[in-house]
């Protein structure tokens, strides 16, 4: 709401009495190296190296080629390679609780450095409680934030894992659902209000994708009842159209332990996206998206997660 008000009120005033002109200034100095890598035990290492660019340059970001990348696990070198024109994938799963550091050496550029530690996965119990007009309601109990992470993030997705051969792979993609719940001590940076559907969703407050709860507030928020959009089923007819199969989407609930860098990156990125969608010219301060890369831009951060998959029976 603040963002809306910040934007709407002064812009109306400006519309009434302002004049606008194109202003020619050039402030871009030189491109910087961007290192992006979010690591989790559930996935192998993926590292992206890009060059930053001017805002008005509509071309795709270009990869940084020829950089030397060194990756260490608990101070022991586990990877040294040179970047090429593709995402750097290292077939190795980060370990829960391990410390990782990365260095990127690029000609005529500052040395990039960053480090992170994989947090322990949280514990919790999640159960399906009811279904209201395709909004699936769940309850999370016995939530334990192991290893004292910076924050817990709750997210929900729906998708189709086992479509018959030949069906549109579009349906196979996991789709992110908003989280609908009433939680006073969660972070409110990505909330929206949805009064119309409150009787179905159980709440007029919805979280854009993840609901973030700082570690200090975990016990105040959980146990928690929430709902998500369960997704539309797809209907597959038999060849003679005499019968059909309705395949309901599968729901996945993620509870994520986040490091401080991951949580702040996610939070500031979402805040910027919301601010950007509203217009950012009247905000009190220019939002700086969190970065922990020394000597450049980007993020090198970690999370760990516990997932709960809910499958629903096919119906004839």
């Amino acid at each position: 709401m603040k963002s809306k008000l910040n934007f709407i009120l002064p812009i109306i005033a400006l519309c009434l009495c302002s004049c606008v002109k194109r202003y020619n200034v050039d402030v871009f100095e030189k491109p910087q190296v961007v290192l992006n890598s979010i690591i989790t035990p559930d996935s192998t290492f993926k590292i992206d190296l890009y060059w930053s660019r001017k805002l008005e340059d509509s071309r795709e970001f270009s990869r940084v080629i020829g950089s030397t990348v060194r990756l260490k696990e608990n101070d022991a070198l586990i990877l040294e390679t040179v970047s090429d024109n593709s995402r750097l994938v290292f077939d190795y799963h980060p370990k829960s609780g391990a410390h990782y550091s990365i260095e990127v050496e690029t000609k005529d550029q500052p040395l990039l450095k960053a480090e992170t530690t994989i947090p322990l996965a949280p514990d919790a119990e999640c159960r399906f409680t009811e279904n209201r007009a395709r909004y699936h309601h769940y309850r999370l109990d016995n939530v334990v934030a192991n290893g004292d992470p910076y924050a817990l993030l709750l997210g929900a997705f729906y998708g189709f894992k086992n479509l018959p051969e030949g069906e549109d792979p579009y349906y196979n993609r996991d789709r992110n659902s908003q989280i609908y719940t009433v939680a006073q001590f969660s972070e409110k940076f990505n909330t929206t209000t949805d009064d119309d559907g409150a009787t179905i969703t159980g709440s007029n407050e919805a979280y854009w994708d993840y609901m973030m709860v700082e570690r200090k507030n975990v016990e105040k928020v959980y146990p928690l009842t929430f709902s998500m959009y369960g997704g539309n089923p797809i209907i597959i007819y038999s060849d003679d159209y005499s019968s059909y199969t309705e395949i309901k989407p599968e729901n996945t609930v993620f509870l994520i332990s986040a490091t401080k860098d991951y949580a702040l990156y996610y939070k500031t990125l979402r805040m910027w996206q919301i601010q950007n969608s509203m217009g950012d010219i009247f905000n009190t301060q220019v939002l700086k998206i969190h970065s922990n890369i020394e000597g450049g831009l980007g993020i090198f951060a970690a999370y760990n997660q516990k997932s709960f998959i809910f499958e629903f029976n096919e119906e004839q």
Binding site: F28, V34, N36, R53, I289
Partner: peptide
């Protein structure tokens, strides 16, 4: 005036974020 890609560039398309 400077932007760089966010982490989810590979999954959800190019997201150019500003280096404010």
């Amino acid at each position: 005036n400077e932007v760089y890609p966010s982490w989810d560039i590979e999954n959800n398309g190019s997201t150019a974020i500003p280096d404010n």
